[in-house]
Design a protein around this nucleic acid. Sequence first.
DNA 1: TTATTATATCATTGAGTGCTGATGTAATGA
DNA 2: TCATTACATCAGCACTCAATGATATAATAA
Lengths: 126, 126
Amino acid sequence: MIHSTGEEMLLAGEKLELELKAKLFRGFSDTSRLSILEALRDKPLNVGEIVQATGLSQSNISNHLGCLRDCGLVTSEQEGRFTYYRLTDDRIDSLLRVAEELLSDVAKGVYLCTRYEVAKGDNDGE
Amino acid sequence: MIHSTGEEMLLAGEKLELELKAKLFRGFSDTSRLSILEALRDKPLNVGEIVQATGLSQSNISNHLGCLRDCGLVTSEQEGRFTYYRLTDDRIDSLLRVAEELLSDVAKGVYLCTRYEVAKGDNDGE
DNA sequence: TTATTATATCATTGAGTGCTGATGTAATGA
DNA sequence: TCATTACATCAGCACTCAATGATATAATAA
């Protein structure tokens, strides 16, 4: 069987959507980006405030913010010499909420998963 | 200001939850794993059927399935010499659905985001 | 038993990517 | 003007991790 029905092969559009979806999730799959998004759930913040909230370095945050902005997850707005960032869409909050619900049940499995270690962040050291 | 109020520092539990959440999203952030999860949305499949559905190699799929199982996103069940995999929770489907909705609006941004290229999968070649 | 099918595991390799430190730039204040 | 603040950008390093190919295991068939 070399080609069979073709039913199971992905169409070009489906493949593209798959890649977009993976890229979207990748925005949430890093502790630094995730902590930025979490910080912005409450209210818009400027970069300095995000530094305060996360404990990450300024350049690191700027890099991640650039990615999150490119990916359409956050938008920026100049105010004097401050740049305020906010989540672009309420469904980002929804996504995080569903993830939290899911996590509350499969947390044990995720906790035990050692195949892909999460990068050890410096989020509580100073 | 060296320590300030402490209000903005993450508690240990919050940090752990952050890492778990990032790890959860990481399960969805790879095109191979995502296509496996997508294939399982309809119905349980054995490994051979997943190979058919995704076009990925057997060892690659087995590796990803091991990760997804460890992370609690899929469960396996032996039937003779076949191993059937299924999604563990309906909220995985919900998460994918919310992501699709979100994507339909921010797709342009995600598409243009070139900071983190998604791994080019061999999903339509043979 | 031996052969075959179905799946899992492992080492290796190569590409991706997060973090830092330095520098650039733009806005405000003195 | 010069200094300072707020943020962005970039190069380089170190680490992670996805994919492959080979091998191992387990179940069935002959």
